[in-house]
Structure formats: C-alpha cells, structure tokens
Design a protein around this nucleic acid. Structure first.
Lengths: 165, 165
DNA sequence: TTTCTTGCAAACTTTTTGCATAATG
DNA sequence: CATTATGCAAAAAGTTTGCAAGAAA
C-alpha cells in the first residue's frame, strides 16, 4: 500500500527537471530527496522546509515554495487539500493510471490511501453524458477510521468542517 | 440539474440556526439570501461579501466570514476547493443522499455539477476492506469541457496545477 | 437586561515577489 | 559568461480575533 521509492524515481524526477531546462541545485536535490523520503505523509511546504533545514540550515522557505510550485507544474508532485488550511503535497506516482485516493478520518484527521480503478466506468459514462473529456479524478471518502470507531461511539453532528464537497 | 431554491430552504436554514441558539440578524438574513440566490455559482466569501454589500453597504467582511463559518459548522453550506487559492461555498442540498460532485475544466475553470449514486457500492466495499466507516465522499473529475474542446486541440502537458489528488 | 452580534482594525497565516548576490551549465 | 536560482525581507492574499458599541430575544 505504501510504496517505497526507488532510485528510478529520483532519476525520473531529475531528468524531467533537466529536460525542462531547470538547473539542479543542491537545494532542489535536498527538497526532492525529502519528498521521496516522505511517501504517504502528505507534507505541507512548511513541514518540508523544516525537514530540509535540518540538513541544510541555510535554505530559505521561499526556495522550498518555488521548488514545489515548479515540481507541481511538472506534475512531479500532486497537491492534496485536507481542509486544515494549508496545501499538502505528495509524490506523483508514475505507475498509477490515476492518482490514488484518500480515506480521511473526520475525527483524528488520519489519512489512509487506497487505489481503486472501479471509477473508470463511471468516468467514461459521465464523460459521454456531459460531453466532458475526463482526464483525471479525485476521490475522498470521509468517515471514521478503525481506531476512532473503537474509542468511543461517534456523535452524528459535528465535524462537518473536515469535509468538502 | 441546477435546482432552484424554495421557501422551504430558507425556512430550513433559519430554523436550524434558531434551534442552535443563534440570533437572526438582518446581516445573517442577507447572507443566507445571497447563498440561496447563487446555487451553482460556488462563491468565495469575498464574492458573497460583494453581493451582500450592494444591499447593505454597512455590513463588514468579518461578519460574512463569521456567518459562513457558522453555517459551515451547521452543515448548511459545503466548502469546495477549486484550487484557485480561496475556499468556495455552496448551499448544502437537503434532498441529496450525498453531496453532488463536480466536473472541473482545467482550461477555463468552469465547474459543472452532477449527481451520481454509482459510488455507493464502491463506498461500501472500501469501508469493509479498510475497516473505515464511510459517511460521505467527495468526487471531482478533471478534464476539458465541451466548449474548450471545440476551441482548440488540447495540449497534453500544462495545467496540472488545476488538479488535486 | 442579559447575551449575542457587529464593525472596525489589527493580527495571523500562508504564499508570492523584488532585488542584490551567488551558483549552475 | 550568460542565465537562472537563492536568501532575505517585504508584500499580498485570505482569514481570524479583540474590543467597544449596538441589537436581538
């Protein structure tokens, strides 16, 4: 479920950046490394910055922002919105037909990932019905994770603020 | 597809607010009216503010924010993230089993809505598989709308920034 | 009259940008 | 060496909050 990263990943990323004419600076290397090391963690830019800073204290937050923007434009990272006010990013996995999806616990905010291609027929149907050329989809399930379900009985009201439409 | 609002909607909202102990001020009324009048438009708080201000210039932006937060907590509005940097809100439709979903054009940013309950069996399956009590889901399809498809041939690169995982 | 709400301004948070300096290919 | 990238600090943009004055139940 949580794939580990290979040296192919790092090569793929570096090649793509080079191909687009970007220089490979130590700062960018450090940021790429951090993203590769944090698969499944859905880090914010600030969190990436904090990790990178440990190895290279001279690095600036603006550089991290600029690098993430750049990687996002190149589709090397995918943005994820978990409704806590800051954007989060994760490595775009090359091997996935579509991006994977997320189970978001509205009690503890834990995020599980899952792959599922059951959506493909729906995608096709919707495309035809609305004359819309579907390229990708994003799916999130909101609910209560196993641990939180054990802890206490869930109260139906509250916590709408963790979901989105 | 784009449902119009009935007086039942406004009664439902007002009753819910009253029931939760909130006072019904003219400011809140104006904001509720605006949201009811803008179904399908996915307004930002600032946009709601601009509309409300025309009728009641004395109203403050903070009041609009506070009212939206409050309505969101009461599940009267649903937050929607269309990746343009600001949160957007829409009326939570009472009659829907789940919230409706969105087709987002990555060229022109147009947002179409669609209802679909084909996801229910997937929801159930995922729930069992991951021991996750699913309460709701959010689904977005990203692609090219009919108009944009006509205009020009789509170039495969670019525009990843409009999508999310 | 008591409590909740408003408007304003200030504070905060996240993200972007200008600019001089430094590093890359 | 020409160009691109960096770090810093300042600016933007979106959202939240403190507080005194005002309105609702």
């Amino acid at each position: 479920m949580t794939p580990t990263c290979t040296s192919e990943d790092i090569q793929r990323i570096i090649n793509k950046l080079k191909k687009s004419g970007y220089k490979l600076t130590p700062q960018r290397q450090a940021i790429v490394d951090t993203i590769l090391d944090s698969v499944g963690m859905h880090l914010t830019v600030e969190e990436i910055f904090d990790i990178v800073k440990k190895k290279r204290p001279e690095i600036g937050l603006a550089t991290v922002y600029r690098t993430i923007v750049l990687m996002h434009e190149e589709n090397l990272v995918t943005r994820l919105d978990l409704k806590d006010g800051t954007a989060r990013y994760e490595l775009t996995r090359e091997d996935e037909h579509h991006t994977h999806h997320h189970l978001v616990c509205i009690k503890c905010s834990q995020v599980l990932e899952f792959m599922d291609d059951l959506l493909d027929p729906i995608e096709e149907e919707i495309g035809k019905k609305y004359n819309f050329k579907v390229l990708d989809h994003s799916l999130k399930f909101y609910g209560i994770c196993n641990e939180c379900a054990k802890e206490e009985t869930f109260k139906e009201e509250t916590k709408y603020d963790k979901r989105e439409g």
